[in-house]
Every structure is written in C-alpha cells, then in structure tokens.
Design a protein around this nucleic acid. Structure first.
Lengths: 230, 230
DNA sequence: GTCTATACAGTGATAGAC
DNA sequence: GTCTATCACTGTATAGAC
C-alpha cells in the first residue's frame, strides 16, 4: 500500500462510500460538529475531494439525509408490497389479539413495518443522522428537507398501510422511542439495571414478537442483544 | 452601557445565566458544534469566563443536561403530588373513556403529566439539548449521564404514577414523538400541509384535551399554535 | 478521479491583570 | 467576579498539479 493515492474508482461508487462515512460521522458529531476532514479520513480519501464532490458540507449532509430517507421509504414500501402480495388480511387490525391496548394496535402489518424499521436503524449512522436532522427544524435547508421526509413517511403509512391517523401517530411514536433507546445505547445497560432491562424486554418483545416470538424459549436475553451491534 | 465589563453579580446567578445560554447554543449546534465563545456571547460575558466557571466544555454540557433532567423530574414530581393531594381517582386508568386504544391509555394522570411535559419542552433549549444528549450514548461521560436520567424518569413514572411497564413505555414513546415534532418545527407547517395539520391536531388534541378541551369551539388552529413559541 | 499546498477564520484553554 | 491577550490547533474551502 503506497497508501497516499486511493484507488481510482467510478464517482458513483466513491459517492456512495463518502455518504456512508459521512452518515457515521454526522451521526456521532452532529452537523456542525462533524468535520469534512473526519469524513474524508473515514472514507479513506482526502478532505478537498469530499468538498469538491459534494460542493460543501451542507450539500453533503443533505445527501446523507436524502439517502437515509430513501432507504427508509424503500424498506417500508417493500414491506407493504410483500404484505399485499400475500393477500393482506383485512386492513390494519385496530384491535390486538391479546388485548394489550397500547403496545400493538397496528396489526400484522404494523409488526412487519416495525421489524423493517428495527433492521434499518441497526445501522447506527443512519439512525443518528436521522435523529440529528429531526432536531434541526430551525435550519432553512436541512429543516425543510427533514420535515418533508418525515411527512412523506407519515403519508406512506397512513395511505398504504391502512392506518388511521391515530394509528399512524402511535406507530411513529414507537419508532421515536426506539430511536431514543438506541441513541442512548440503553442496550448496554441490559441485565445491569432493573429498569433498563424491563423497558428493553417490554419494547423488543412487542416489536419483534413476530420473528422472535419463539425466542421466548431461548431466553429473553437474546432479543435486546440483537439491537446492540457494532 | 460601557458594555465591555459585565455587571458584577453573584456566581450562582451567573452560573444560571450561562446554563440557560448554553442550553440554547448546545441545542441548536450540538455538543461538538457549539463553541464556548457562542455560549459566552449568548450569556453576555467573555469566553474565558465560561471556561473558567465550568472547568471546560464537557462539564458545561453535563451541567446543562443535569439542569434539564432536574427540571423534568421536578415538574413530574409536582404534578404527581398535586394529583395525589386531590385524591387521585384509582390508579392510572388502563382503559380510555372513548375507546381509543392507543392515544390515551394513561388516564387522568397521564394527561396531566403529558401537559406538564409539553409546557416544559416549550423551552426549545431544554428540548433540543435533551435530544442531543439522547443521541450521545457512545460518549462515556455524557452517555452515562443521559441513560441514568432517562431511566430515572422511567422509574418515576412507573413507580409513582402507577403505570404498568407497558403504559410507561407508551407514555415515553408519546414524549419522544413530541420531541421530534417540535425539533422538526412541524408546527411551522400547520395549515400549509395536509399531513402535518392532521398529525399535529391528532397529537395536540390528545395531549391537551384537558386544558384545551373546550378550545374545539375556538377553532382547532389555536391548539398547535400554542406549541410554537419563540 | 484524486492529491498537495495553502489562505483565512475560528477554537478551547491558560496566564495574568484589574 | 470578570476581562484582555494569546497560544497551539483545527476547520472549510480554493487553486492547481498529476
């Protein structure tokens, strides 16, 4: 490795590498706290090249945000398509099987969408840069983009999953709690703090009961551990 | 105003001024993005004085976080005391009057706590610096403090409001959604975007129905407007 | 497509005066 | 209790070479 000059690769591919690195750095340090140099190093290229390719830090953040929203929309859309292809049983069931009033309430499709969401935000860069964007409403460019994205998700859920406005709101609330628990790294506290353990089991049992339903036999500890990752 | 030298005031008072200013700046720019100089200017004093009084940027952020969590805990504790003093009707009603499964679910005390929370996070500095802290789980000092604070709130709700773990989780989820809507400045979109309007009315009708219940007659527009503030 | 060099503006923290 | 001066870095963006 002469190491100084990176391999010459197509710009589309390089662009994706930079976005991936930027997602992590923006996530950890925030928009203002992240530096183009940190991003460049994370992507294995020079700082001026990052700036040149995106025209500036703000454009780069907008790129990261667009990519995150796009991935989210695609994940939800695919989940909905699969569900419909299987012959979606009725619309989203408003009432839960076991009578729990709050936790479920979104029916089978709600569980599937929730699972798709959890899988997506295991990418901590994506999770954290979304969270950053959601706290930047005051920024003219980024704030507007973030609001648009959030509303696009709201509409998708309401219009395609058959959720009522109330169900949509509740589903989003659950998602925002997941964001917070993972942002806080609360799974690190699993098994070491009574409240954390209870909250995590309660959350992930509900969210993942579809796939991990049988995991109750394997010991409940494996469910929250699933969310720790890198 | 000779303007160069600030009035000589007691350190406790100055400390509070700095925390208030820091809360706003950290909220808007994030921990890494905020500068001690911006905070100093917002507080109307010199940058070295800020550093000297708190011993460094990290201590200052921890101070801001402690203050925010303290205010939140106090607000909830007072709300609970008032409620109990009035002769709290049963425990937290698990079932809602109008049959809505998700929105309420926390009974009278849930509505009161929700209202106390909304009032508190009208302070955008507090809201945003909490949100920042909740995305910093990876930081050894700040992350640990943030987790502790979040769990303290969880325990308070569960143990003092009589919530089940499920109800507590659901209440927190609602709070995290509120954070996001306000962080995004979604109220700016009220009346200008169909989905935003619906989501806000749905959210604030539920949260504020206690105080603004009769406001349905004044036109629903006034409810979300309440949350915009400075 | 990718780099080095560099201009110009901050940035946290310390020293020490008043 | 509060400031000015200042150091040693770090940050974005541009110019221009390969």
């Amino acid at each position: 490795m002469t190491d100084k000059i990176s391999e010459r690769i197509p710009s589309a591919e390089r662009r994706e590498q930079i976005l991936e690195a930027a997602s992590r750095v923006f996530g950890e340090r925030g928009y203002f706290g992240a530096t183009t140099d940190q991003i460049a190093k994370a992507a294995g290229i020079s700082q001026p090249y990052v700036v040149r390719m995106f025209g500036g830090k703000e454009n780069l953040f907008v790129g990261v945000l667009s990519r995150s929203l796009e991935r989210l929309l695609v994940a939800f859309t695919r989940t909905l398509e699969d569900w419909k292809a299987e012959g979606s049983p009725a619309a989203a069931a408003a009432v839960v099987s076991d009578g729990t009033p709050v936790a479920g309430g979104h029916g089978e499709i709600g569980r599937r969408l929730g699972l798709a969401y959890v899988n997506l935000i295991e990418d901590r860069g994506l999770l954290l840069s979304l969270m950053q964007a959601f706290s930047m409403g005051q920024d003219p460019t980024i704030g507007a983009k973030a609001r648009d994205g959030f509303l696009a998700i709201y509409r998708l859920l309401r219009d395609e999953a058959g959720f009522t406005p109330e169900q949509t709101r509740s589903f989003l609330a659950e998602g925002m709690l997941l964001n917070t628990l993972l942002g806080l790294r609360l799974p690190d506290e699993y098994g070491r703090d009574e409240a954390a353990t209870e909250l995590l089991e309660c959350t992930f049992r509900t969210k993942l009961e579809l796939v991990l339903g049988v995991a109750a036999e394997n010991g409940a500890a494996s469910a929250p551990a699933k969310a720790q990752g890198a």
